[in-house]
Computed example of a mutant assay.
Amino acid sequence: MSRRNTPSRIKSNRNYTVIDVSETLGVHPKTVRNWIRVGLPVVDSKRPLLINGADLKVHFKQKRSAIRFNVAKHEMSCFRCQGAMKPNIESVQFIEQPAGMALMKGVCNECGCRMNKYVSWRDVHEIWLELKGKLPIAQKHIILRDQNLSNYPFSGVSSDEK
């Protein structure tokens, strides 16, 4: 399982060498050189390569925003379809989490891939209605006045039930 490199470990006002970045983030130096090849700016081309901490933070934020999908409240990110998709209404589940959050689980309508998303617990009702889900209707209580119940051991009905 891959680990997300957090920019909070990097100091903005410091310059890092490739080895310093690899030790700070816990990645291999070749990974840092690959980031430089892809577009991480360096201070100059002289050895040792120096990387500005602020540039490294910006690079991580750009990488993170490139893989995120802009989804509406009622949509979820499907990684197989590579976009925001509505889940199948029969598969949607809301699991309560601490701090007023809910885990929304569902299956993609297009490819059948499982999807997860954390939502605010107060938005669950709005999301459910947006997905055109039918709210469960409470069944009316069965009123059995003046009738003998089959599992009731006494033959008569007490006076307080009338």
Results as ranks from 00 to 15, higher is better:
H125N: 11
I67D: 00
S120G: 13
L40Y: 01
I67C: 00
F69G: 00
V43M: 11
M104Y: 04
S159A: 14
S65T: 05
K86N: 13
L131V: 03
W35D: 00
E23F: 06
K105P: 01
M104C: 03
H28W: 10
T6Q: 03
S8E: 14
N52R: 15
D160W: 15
I137T: 12
V42N: 01
Q97M: 15
V42P: 05
C113H: 15
Q97D: 09
A54D: 13
V71M: 06
K134D: 14
V18H: 02
N70P: 02
C78K: 02
S22E: 03
K162Q: 11
G53Y: 06
R114K: 14
A99P: 00
S77I: 01
Q147S: 08
I137G: 06
K57D: 01
R37A: 13
P153K: 06
G156H: 12
R33F: 04
Q139V: 13
N34E: 09
V27F: 05
D55Q: 07
S155C: 07
N5I: 10
S155L: 07
G83V: 07
L50W: 07
S150M: 08
G133T: 02
N109S: 11
K162D: 10
L103S: 08
L144N: 13
W121H: 12
L131Q: 04
A66I: 00
P98D: 09
C81D: 07
N13F: 11
M76A: 04
P136C: 07
P98R: 07
K105L: 15
R33Q: 15
R33C: 02
R68L: 11
K105T: 14
K105A: 10
Y152M: 05
E75C: 01
F60V: 01
F69N: 01
